[in-house]
Nucleic acid binder design. Sequence first.
DNA 1: ATAGATTAAATCGCATGCGACCTAGTTCAA
DNA 2: TTGAACTAGGTCGCATGCGATTTAATCTAT
Lengths: 159, 159
Amino acid sequence: MSDKGDITGKGSVADDPMRLGDFLCFAVYSANHAFNRVYKPMLDRLGLTYPQYVVMVALWEGDGLTVGQIGDRVLLETNTLTPLLKRMEGSGLVQRSRCAEDERQVRVKLTEKGRALRAEAAIVPREMGSCLEKDTATLERLTHELTCLRDGLLARIKA
Amino acid sequence: MSDKGDITGKGSVADDPMRLGDFLCFAVYSANHAFNRVYKPMLDRLGLTYPQYVVMVALWEGDGLTVGQIGDRVLLETNTLTPLLKRMEGSGLVQRSRCAEDERQVRVKLTEKGRALRAEAAIVPREMGSCLEKDTATLERLTHELTCLRDGLLARIKA
DNA sequence: ATAGATTAAATCGCATGCGACCTAGTTCAA
DNA sequence: TTGAACTAGGTCGCATGCGATTTAATCTAT
């Protein structure tokens, strides 16, 4: 007997505690906000928002991606990326240009300033690491488990 | 030798792979988006957004909270909650009213419709559970680890 | 008793995210 | 080869989140 295993859902909807603290989704949701708040002062110094930082990491990993390729890596749609990339172009970090081979595509290249920011940004993961009072192995395992969880969820959507 | 343990940060900033997939923050960030996408169709049927759902869970847990108390539970600021609660009042789920004892506070109470929605919403965690191909113990452990991680990060901010 | 500090919400501005739709370039099939 | 289908980006609207600021109510120390 007992708790949430009650697949019938009968008899105790009004009694079910429904504790927010037991929700994995809320743990992820609130952990994400917590990360954002810790990152904010660090990224402010770089003149980046968190999603912009993610895009920069993707471009430092491999420059000259198209908007769609960036979307594949950071898992965002073009309707989010286009305005974001325009703001990044506005701050002089990237340069957007139509591909010659396929005029539908837009290639995003780092500017000199964008490449230079990489050295500045190198402290960010170290500073963040010191905020996470866990050993590296635990953090790597968590990262892996969450990535699997995410990919499992994303697979459900396309299905 | 080797990788990210290089606390000196010398010599290889440009060579550091900086792989997005290794970032715990990105795993959390993208897992959060994945949750949102899976939840969307379920919550659409209830007429809720995900943050609204979180607030409803908090209120089902304990009705008649003030805006600040809701913020403590869902970890959001009043500048986010006020418009969100107004929209929820607009859809007839809650009723907002100034406290008599302390006119600064606003008490949020579920309407009959809001209480009734609880039964409908009971399927959501079950449906989500079936999307997560993990055993309950793993999910509970992950929830706990993320909650600890989050609280550790939040403690850094107030410090 | 009352001025100043404190507190709870609310307002404003900006940057995401994404669904729905649009546009222009490319491909494919008859 | 040419019109339909497809594809890559982009636009628009709406709902978060949050920093900065404001307003109104309460508290506190003199």
